[in-house]
């Protein structure tokens, strides 16, 4: 296996958290991983990025230029990500904040209204985990169960939040499996 994932979104959307979480899970599954966050002043206001490479070989570049997977948490990151995607790659789009049409026909797109689904769970701040769940449904890089295990190892404020995070992962996963709306054709 060799997957290269870029996640993009606003500061505060938990972009780094889900990147780190997936990296932890993949690491526990025995893969080589690199988690490369954007850092410093970028964190304030603008778009936040992270790059996660998961492989069964020694990983070279710390950066990803042609992702095989991506999550666009907002419209600004979708605009940047769409043209970067490798053919046949998987693009997960947070439809709630990135409703625009996607023109590329050579990539697989999974759209989930991550913020709306998270709000239904009672807290729109877990939209990141909904999106990560959807990614996993589109491409099972790690088993869902190993993500939930990794979640338990991450710093969390309290038990309720941990449960909520798990629920959000599952909701995203099931939604993407069952009835992911083909993007731009709603």
């Amino acid at each position: 296996m060799h997957e290269e994932l870029i996640i993009g979104g606003f500061g505060g959307q938990g972009v780094l958290f889900i990147g780190r979480l997936l990296a932890e899970a993949a690491f526990r599954e025995g893969h080589e991983v690199v988690f490369m966050p954007s850092y410093g002043a970028e964190k304030r206001g603008g778009t936040v990025w992270c790059h996660v490479t998961i492989s069964d070989e020694e990983i070279g570049s710390l950066f990803i230029t042609k992702p095989t997977m991506a999550i666009a948490m907002n419209s600004a990151s979708l605009i940047k990500l769409e043209p970067m995607m490798k053919p046949e790659s998987l693009l997960v789009v947070n439809q709630s904040l990135a409703p625009q049409e996607i023109s590329r026909a050579d990539i697989q797109v999974v759209s989930v209204p991550a913020n709306d689904l998270a709000a239904e769970l009672g807290d729109s701040s877990v939209s990141n985990l909904v999106a990560l769940g959807a990614l996993l449904a589109g491409r099972p890089v790690v088993p869902l169960a190993s993500l939930t295990t990794a979640l338990e190892g991450m710093p969390a404020k309290n038990k309720e939040l941990l449960q909520l995070n798990k629920r959000a992962l599952e909701v995203g996963y099931t939604r993407a499996q069952k009835d992911a709306v083909p993007h731009g054709r709603r």
């Binding site: 780190r20 990296a23 690491f27 080589e32 991983v33 690199v34 988690f35 490369m36 966050p37 850092y39 990983i59 710390l62 950066f63």
Partner: peptide, 10 residues
């Protein structure tokens, strides 16, 4: 460098 400083690896 900053990239290696920030990157997480096993």
């Amino acid at each position: 460098d900053g990239f290696l400083g920030q990157a997480m690896e096993p």
